[in-house]
């Protein structure tokens, strides 16, 4: 069980949150098809740290960015989602 420190709500149980996708798999509207395909379907899937997009669905319903270790589940960074990523 993880405790996630939501930048908007403070520390909450992981069960309030839903994983969306990795940060490097976000596709923008003007992205070339090849790059969009690679982002949609090819994942690094590391046994280590990765940046992930989560949503606080049972809280503030905002997207947040977690930097999380996939073996230990340690969360080394939490940040509010920056919409600039989408452009």
């Amino acid at each position: 069980m993880m405790r996630i420190d939501c930048p908007h709500c403070g520390p909450r149980a992981q069960s309030e949150f839903g994983y969306e996708r990795t940060l490097d798999s976000i596709v923008t509207l003007d992205m070339p098809a090849d790059e969009a395909m690679a982002r949609l379907y090819a994942r690094a899937n590391p046994r280590g740290l990765d940046d992930e997009l989560w949503r606080h669905g049972l809280g503030c319903r905002q997207w947040i960015v977690l930097r999380r270790h996939r073996v230990t589940h340690e969360i080394v960074g939490v940040a509010a989602f920056d919409p600039a990523i989408l452009s």
Partner: peptide, 16 residues
């Protein structure tokens, strides 16, 4: 699958 394929520089449509 992901980490082993990564040894060959390949990214897969798989998440563990």
């Amino acid at each position: 699958s992901g980490p082993v394929a990564a040894l060959a520089g390949i990214r897969l449509p798989i998440e563990a």
